[in-house]
Structure formats: C-alpha cells, structure tokens
Amino acid sequence: MLYGKNYTSIRLVFLFLSGVMLLFIVAPLLGLFFSTSVPGLFETFRDKEVTSSIGLSLGVSALFTLLAAFFALPLAYIMAHKEFRGKAIIQGLIDIPIVLPHSAAGIAVLGFISRDSALGKFADLFGLNLVGSPFAIGVAMAFVSVPFLINAARDGFLAVPGRLEQAARSLGASPFKVFRQISLPLAKPSVITGLVMMFARGMSEFGAVVIVAYHPMTTPVLIFDRFNSYGLDYARPVAVLFIIICILVFIALRLLGRKRKET
C-alpha cells in the first residue's frame, strides 16, 4: 500500500516536471504566434526580401547537406566498421563543431575562406570573393551541422549486422557493392534522420553565418537585422513565417523518411 502511494506521488511529480518542461518549449512559440496578426503574416509573405531569404536558407542548406553527405557517409561507415588507433580522437574532432560557440565557428570558417587563405586565393584567381557569398553561407551551415549527419549515419551503420555484409561478400559483392546495396539501404532510416537534422540545423544557423555573410541575408540574419533596425514588431512576423516553414519542411521530410522505411 505504502509502495503504491509512493509510486503515485512520484508519478505526479514526474508528470508536473514534464509539464513544466513542455510548457518551457511551447510557451515562447505560442506567445510569438498569438502576438502576430494574420494580415501582417500575409504581408510578410509578399515581402520579396523575406521570401528570397527563405529560399536562400532552404536552398543553400539543402545543397550543402547533399554535398556534405558525399563525404560524411564514407566517414560514418569507417567510424562504424573500423577499429584503429586514434579513433577516439577522430570522434572528438567530428563532435567539435557541436560544442564550439557558433560565432567562434564562424570566425574559423571565415579564416578558411578569406582572401588570405589558400582557398580564398584560389577563388581570387577567377575573380571570386568567397566571403559574403552563398558558398560561404553553405560552408558555415555545413560546418556547424555536419556532426548530426555523421553521428546519426554512424549509429545506423553500427546497427547493420556484420553477418549480412559478410554474406554479401561471400555471394560475390565487392566492398563498395556491400556498402551501396546492403549497408546503406539498411541504415537508411538513420541516414535520413541525419540528413533531416543537418538540413534543419543548417538552415536555422545564425551565429556562424552572420560572420561569413551578412549579405545575402538568410532568414535568421534577416530576423536579427529587422529586430536590430526596426524592433520586435518588424522582426516577429518574419520569425513566425520562418518557424512555420521550418516545421512544415521538417514534418514533410520525416513523413518521407517514414514512408520510405515502410516500403
């Protein structure tokens, strides 16, 4: 009886704490939505500066997520399958962008692409300035978000039974075919989750992007710019619109991933 009473009390405490946590996440968002008028939202939707910034954020993030996947998936596969000296150091390196302050990450990326760097000098040969370009935005987005893809894909590859890969080898598959036809399809749900996480994290990045490219403006930079120049009322509708689009894209990609998993 005493046990049952304790159990109920603990459950109530846990439910209360969980409720506070959920409220902490939902309340600012609801406050944002309720303080924005629908006509104001439509007006923002017709604002070309806003729509082009949303297009830039989504497009660059999607492109650099796909580009990064080309390199990140082989790295994730190696991290899942190979044991080697210094593996823990490599894993630490992969996780560094997650723990860095994003403004510091932006400074690091800026050093990598500025005119003084090897890459910047190379681009300069063709008359290109990487700083302030969509390329800079993409590199900054990818830098801070690629660990999400690598780690999710690594976990997916780890979950593929080694027996299946051995079976494929013994049936005549080369190591690359094993990767493409067995490991990758079986790890696909985790890989898709990683791609979605990287894409979502990339398109919402502010700290690193604002340092490498204030213009052209991504939506997070535009929200900051409007807040800084005109105040909260001007920044709020853009923020609401971007949040709605982020949520819609996020739901669509998750549904796509689930549908593929079911098929």
Binding site: R163, L164, Q166, A167, A168, R169, S170, S174, P185, L186
Partner: peptide
C-alpha cells in the same frame, strides 16, 4: 583471393538473409 572471387558458398548459422 578476396571472398567475392572464391568459388565457395557459405551458409551462415542464422542464414543471414537480407531483410530489405
């Protein structure tokens, strides 16, 4: 010789059928 080029068939204990 790498495994894919050996004239050998291996039946695994758990059969290792590809689940997808």
């Amino acid at each position: 010789t790498p495994p894919q080029h050996r004239p050998v068939g291996l039946l695994f204990q758990d059969y290792a059928l590809f689940p997808h």
